[in-house]
């Protein structure tokens, strides 16, 4: 049984709003009294994913399931997809254009960060169709 299920639309055309969903999840987990170290890992991992949905995926949605022992984050977009996931996972690899870089993103660190802060991560991406990303963060994790 999940304690809480949260759903968010992530608008693709408004960079200033990117991070609203992750910020809201963070607030809600705090109110639930969730483990602070786990909250921070959820927030950072989801925020990186949310930014990717905005700058690479053209917008999408987030579904977050909160259990007492874990948080499951699902990010879905219908953007261009990722042709080579293995490459995309490498630190420093990015296709972000210069305008994204001037906004402070495009270092090619997002996916590696997400891998680092989550306990489980799966990417299901089809070129021309979109990307589904699932992350699990445990309330009590050896990574914390």
């Amino acid at each position: 049984m999940s304690m809480l299920e949260l759903k968010y639309d992530i608008p693709g055309d408004d960079f200033t709003r990117a991070g609203e969903a992750s910020g809201d999840v963070k607030q809600k987990l705090k109110k639930l009294g969730y483990n602070p170290a786990a909250i921070r890992r959820v927030a950072i991992a989801m925020y990186e994913g949310e930014i990717n949905v905005v700058i690479h995926g053209g917008g999408g949605e987030a579904i977050v399931d909160v259990d007492p022992d874990k948080v499951v984050i699902l990010l879905i977009d219908h953007g261009p997809g990722i042709a080579d996931v293995e490459k995309a996972m490498q630190e420093g690899w990015s296709t972000a254009p210069d305008n994204v870089r001037s906004l402070g993103f495009g270092a090619g660190m997002g996916l590696p960060n997400m891998k680092k802060y989550s306990d489980e991560m799966e990417i299901d991406s089809v070129v021309g169709k979109g990307t589904k990303l699932r992350m699990v963060v445990y309330a009590q994790s050896p990574k914390a």
């Binding site: 200033t16 991070g19 963070k26 927030a43 402070g104």
Partner: peptide, 15 residues
């Protein structure tokens, strides 16, 4: 030196 809202978001996520 960056001025957009993501600076605050980043600080927020990292406490």
């Amino acid at each position: 030196g960056l001025l957009n809202p993501q600076v605050v978001r980043t600080a927020e996520m990292m406490d």
